[in-house]
Design a protein around this nucleic acid. Structure first.
Lengths: 136, 136
DNA sequence: AGTGCTGGTCTATTTTTGAGACTGACATCG
DNA sequence: CGATGTCAGTCTCAAAAATAGACCAGCACT
C-alpha cells in the first residue's frame, strides 16, 4: 500500500519535480489551489448530494458571505466542477449542480473528508499535547 | 461506487448536517481548514517522500516565504502530521518528518493529488471555455 | 575581518476575506 | 396605495491573512 501511494505520488508530481514545483507550471498546484479554498469543499460536498439553489447553499453554509458564495461558485464553475442554470421564474432562480468532472473529483475527495471525520479526535489530541508542551 | 461514496460522505458529515456545518463544530471543516492551506499539501507531499530539513524544503518549494514555511510547518506539527527534530550539529540543523498520522492522511490525500495531475487538462479546458464564453 | 551557512523572527506592504448596504423586478400583506 | 419580503447577486470599505525582504545569533573557513 505504501508502495502504491509512493508511485501514485511520483506519477502525480513528475512534471513538478523537474522544476521543484515551479508556481505556474505544476498541475497539482494549479488544481489544488482552487479546491483547497476555505469554502470549496463545503460547497462541493453540498452539491455532491443534490443540486441546490443559491439561497439554499447560503442557508446550508450559514457563515459564508454572499460575496464569497458568489465568487467560490463562479470559480468552481469556471474550473468545470459545477454547472449553473438560470430558470426564468418570477423571481428568477438559479440552480447549481455538479458536472461529471466534479463528480469524478469528488470520489477521491470524499475519502479525504471521511478521513477527516474519522481522525478528528486524533488531530485534536495532537493539538492539545502540542499546546500543553511549552510553545503555545 | 456512487453509492459507496454517498454513504461515506453521509457518515463523514453526520455531525455537521445537524447544524448545517456550524463553524466551530464540524470535524471536517476543522481538519480541512489546515490541510487546505496553500502550502500544506506541497509540504506534506515533500515530506511523504522522505524527511527534509528546513533549507531543503525552502529550495523544494521556491516560492514560499520563510515566514509561511515556518508557520505552515508549525501548524502541521501542531495537528500531528509531522515531527520536528533538532540536531545539535555545528550550524544546528532541523529535520522534519511525517508521523504515522500524517502518513495515514496522505493515503487518501495522494489520491486527490493524483486526480489533479490526471485531470489538469480537463480543468484547463473548462477554464478556457468559460473565459471565452462572454464573462471573463 | 569578512563571508557564508544554519533556522528562524520582525516589519511593512500587498492580497484576500468578510460584513453589510444596495439593486431591481416581482409578489404578498394590510 | 404603500410597505415589506424574496430572489440572486453587486459594491464599498474595513479587517485579516499572505508576502517580500531585512535582520538575528552562532559557528566555520579563509
Amino acid at each position: 500500500m505504501d508502495q502504491a501511494v509512493r508511485s501514485a505520488v511520483k506519477a502525480a508530481t513528475a512534471d513538478c519535480d523537474r522544476n521543484a514545483w515551479d508556481a505556474g507550471n505544476c498541475p497539482v498546484r494549479d488544481v489544488m489551489n482552487r479546491i483547497s479554498g476555505k469554502w470549496s469543499t463545503l460547497l462541493l460536498e453540498a452539491l455532491a448530494e443534490k443540486p441546490h439553489r443559491f439561497g439554499e447553499l447560503r442557508r446550508l453554509v450559514p457563515d459564508i458571505s454572499q460575496r464569497m458564495l458568489t465568487q467560490t461558485l463562479r470559480d468552481l464553475q469556471r474550473d468545470g466542477y459545477i454547472e449553473r442554470e438560470v430558470f426564468p421564474t418570477k423571481p428568477p432562480s438559479v440552480e447549481y449542480r455538479m458536472t461529471p468532472l466534479g463528480r469524478s473529483l469528488f470520489g477521491p475527495l470524499s475519502k479525504v473528508l471521511a478521513w477527516a471525520a474519522e481522525n478528528h479526535d486524533a488531530v485534536r489530541a495532537a493539538r492539545r499535547s502540542f499546546d500543553d508542551a511549552g510553545l503555545a
